[in-house]
Amino acid sequence: METRASDPNGAASPAPTLPRATPVRRVIRESADTVTLELDNSVGRSFAPGQFNMLYLFGVGEVAVSISGGPVESQVLAHTVRAAGAVTRLLVNVKRGATIGVRGPYGSAWPIEGAARERLDLLVVAGGIGIAPLRPVIYHALRERHRFGRLIVLFGARRPDDLIYAREFNRWRAYPGVELRTIVDHGSSNWRGPVGIITDLLATTDFDHDDTLAMVCGPEVMMRFVRHALVGRGLPPERIYLSLERNMKCAIGHCGHCQLLPFFVCKDGPIFALPKVAPLLDMREL
């Protein structure tokens, strides 16, 4: 990747973990605890859907956040952040015009170019904030609709208000060959969609197991069950991709924190083909 610091001699390379001062161009409130930060990208830094950046808030700390927007050549890079830990609880409160530190992009990408070559159907399965690293896939598949087959998006969340990006759903659905289905754990009185779990949607979604690429991101429990459901429906494991989460500190494979047996999730992942990680998913405390 041209955006990566690279110097085979090492000694002369610039600090690979030095953040770039980056202005926040816009803050979009997505839900009670989630915002999207649109960060300046006037330099036109590119990324591949599925990759993440490290965001640093002055005096607070740093956290890995997947890139949730596009298009690739856009003037801003969107990062959807949910208040969940010490850093993100403050990061969701930054204001337009603030400067934060950014380094990246890091990590592996969803295999959408390969899918385009074979003109596969795309099955996106997202749980909660797990939709964020998949939104660039959706954008890509909408923009280049002719290069892909169907685009099926199954999105589960806790409550209707947690279905982030809902303001865009009608626009997504307007493209030909796009199906978007949502489900929530707990409904509210004005919710007209299904109440249940993500595998309920999967059970009633028709897809061609010979011709579909599945991309899954959500809580680890959800991914374990979705994976069994997909395999049970005849989808070959090598066409199922998952985005895994581990503690990312350095993001360049040096600090050791994100290890998952043989893998450094920061550089070998976060996106993995199921066969690479299948046995590891069932093992506790790896």
Binding site: P8, G10, A11, A12, S13, A15, P16, I252, H254, K267
Partner: peptide, 18 residues
């Protein structure tokens, strides 16, 4: 092999190592 990697090198380690 860990710190003077193919993609990223730790500049502090690399300098002392050199």
């Amino acid at each position: 092999k860990v710190l003077i990697g193919a993609t990223y090198s730790d500049p502090h380690y690399a300098a002392r190592r050199a």
